[in-house]
Design a protein around this nucleic acid. Sequence first.
DNA 1: ATTATCTATAGATCTATAGATAATGC
DNA 2: ATTATCTATAGATCTATAGATAATGC
Lengths: 208, 208
Amino acid sequence: MSTSRNRRRPGRPPRTESGDTKAALLEAALRLFARHGYAGTSIRAIAREVGLSESVLYAHFDGKRDLYEAAMALAGPQVAVTVAAGPDEDPAAFVRRFAAAMLAAWDTPRARETASLAARDGLMHDEALNAAVEGALAYLSDVFAGWIAAGRIRTDLGSPDDLAYSLLSPIAHARMLWLHAEATEEQRERARTRVTAHAALFGRALLS
Amino acid sequence: MSTSRNRRRPGRPPRTESGDTKAALLEAALRLFARHGYAGTSIRAIAREVGLSESVLYAHFDGKRDLYEAAMALAGPQVAVTVAAGPDEDPAAFVRRFAAAMLAAWDTPRARETASLAARDGLMHDEALNAAVEGALAYLSDVFAGWIAAGRIRTDLGSPDDLAYSLLSPIAHARMLWLHAEATEEQRERARTRVTAHAALFGRALLS
DNA sequence: ATTATCTATAGATCTATAGATAATGC
DNA sequence: ATTATCTATAGATCTATAGATAATGC
């Protein structure tokens, strides 16, 4: 958690001591912005986290805002979760596998920082930060449309789009509640329990 | 939006000009904290919003933190949504009514500020702020248990608790996404559409 | 006398910049 | 010469307090 390097003496540090400062600054910035928000995180705190003086930051970024945007870009490109549905796979089994894949993708330190970044600073609708959710929604909708066309699931429940929302949003909600930057192990376990139970329930609801 | 009073001259203001300053400060504080977070909101900004100097605030509150907590208490006590299930009411109809009641309760300026307060500053789990959700979950669970015992809904879907989560969390998720302090009319409409479709879908899933 | 406001200001902290310093790579 | 760091500092802003001022209610 604390500083990863010690205070240097003036002048350019020898090669051995100088790691990838820019990357280190970005990592520290993302971590702190996710935990304390933009206004709650000072340039000073970020630099101290990396073990450097504040002014180094201005050698790598135009200023606080620029660093924030770079950190968001780091958080943004979440890998889209793709769970190919086997042609004959049981819909309920697919739903369970899909939920498990979303959980796995979202229960990582980076993804949890992304969730916190989105919650703070009014970024709940930031496009880059929500690409994963939007992509998953569209993908699920396609899968459900195929199943409905093939008569493999109940056709009276709702549109493919509605099915996708009703399946995905409890998973996304669990993420916001229990898979954020400061989540405890108990909270993460709660997310797994809730999501697993929901996926099983939803899978059963699709049939008959 | 801007100041609701003009700058005063020194000295105690005449009765006519002096409204309920403490209440005005609280309202302004809640609004600004919900929009910009704790660190992003200054004492100065709150006082300016009310049209008074910063120092008045210290006559009514111990300091910024105290004001914040008072504003949270103002946001906290959300009326618990109670939708009594008629003894012979169709479960699907009850589910639709319940969702509509949650929507109505959450689509108010105050409730939307509460949602934003919860999202920022890591308060997603603040007890007071989540009392409404917790209460609704417990209530729904009871209703479902009754229906299962009476054989009025599918018994193979999941436990009453799981049913409650799968019904409520898409509604709560819609709230976080589209019923926050700065939500546009389009977003609020999106919340209504999503929640209505979800409730209808869930109601149908409960049967047969 | 008490209350509710104001002005002025102290002291802390924040972002950002200027200029010094030392290692690197040509 | 260039690069990557440092120290020192300017100037803005923030929280909080002290003391002045004027209306209120006894």
